[in-house]
């Protein structure tokens, strides 16, 4: 017996909610970045679950697209964080409120 599709979707929803709350709560940029990764993973889980229950490979292919986006995000996001740290000696997003070099 396998757990039904609804269980996977519920898990996906819970993880997404935790990620969203984290983005709002976290103050340092790396923490927010990690919570966004968590949300992307929650979406991946529902893709794979649908792919399994409808025996269609499309869901799994879009997991790849999401992973590629996450990889791009990691490269650019961490680049921004390092550049920001060089200017402000902090990764706190509150310190990023000034539009000035």
């Amino acid at each position: 017996m396998e757990p039904g599709l609804e269980n996977y979707l519920a898990l996906s929803g819970i993880l997404f909610a935790i990620g969203a709350v984290g983005v709002v709560y976290k103050r340092n940029a790396i923490g927010m970045f990690m919570c966004i990764e968590l949300m992307l993973n929650a979406v991946n889980l529902s893709f794979v679950a649908f792919s399994r229950y409808y025996a269609d490979v499309t869901g799994q292919l879009f997991v790849f697209m999401v992973m590629a986006v996450a990889a791009c995000e990691a490269a650019v996001g961490l680049g921004i964080i390092i550049a920001f740290f060089r200017n402000r000696i902090s990764v706190d997003v509150d310190d990023a409120s000034i539009l000035k070099h």
Binding site: G4, N7, L9, A10, G13, F16, A17, V21, V24
Partner: peptide, 29 residues
């Protein structure tokens, strides 16, 4: 804001759980 957002999303997750539970079972291939 964060608490409200989280609560809303959790409610949504359980609504999805309930809605999918009510639909006829899909046989896994």
């Amino acid at each position: 804001i964060g608490g409200g957002l989280g609560a809303a999303m959790l409610a949504q997750a359980f609504f999805i759980f309930y809605a999918v539970l009510k639909t006829p079972k899909h046989v896994v291939d």
